[in-house]
Amino acid sequence: MKRLFLAALCTSLWTGIALADGAISIDDPQVRLVPPSTENTAVFMRIRNRGDKDVNLLRAESPAAKTAELHTVIEEGGMKKMRPVANIPIKAKGETALKPGDYHVMLIGLTKPLQEGDEVALTLKFDDGSSQSVVAPVRRIHVTMH
């Protein structure tokens, strides 16, 4: 029990440090609401890199799904093609948007159907060794392009 408490304390301290000093921050994470029996959905967000070095998002993990993968959508030969990617780059002093029709975190094999307003925990791991934990609300994603 004591050990568990210590572990929790370390984690929270570490998270606190990451939030205070980390080059990476996450804005507006959200999970796309999908029809109830659909097993996959996408997570969108903006990832900002305040640091002087390019950083890559390497992995995503979530208890809400069996697997979380990094995907993108390309347009080729008149078709939309979803493809897994090894990483999602965030330029130094830059920002990468995970958004419809572009990079996204794909949750595959949802462990339970998601309702509008549910919150999904997500941990993102970067190649600078940092990690970010976010809570993404489930929303109807309305794309307003223009």
Binding site: E69, G77, G78, M79, M82, R83, M106, I108, G109
Partner: peptide, 20 residues
């Protein structure tokens, strides 16, 4: 409509590339 089943290295197993 253009479409093609595409095996991908993903837990999704395959995707359908398609015009939209």
């Amino acid at each position: 409509v253009l479409f093609a089943r595409q095996k991908v290295d993903s837990a999704a197993n395959y995707v359908i590339d398609h015009s939209s």
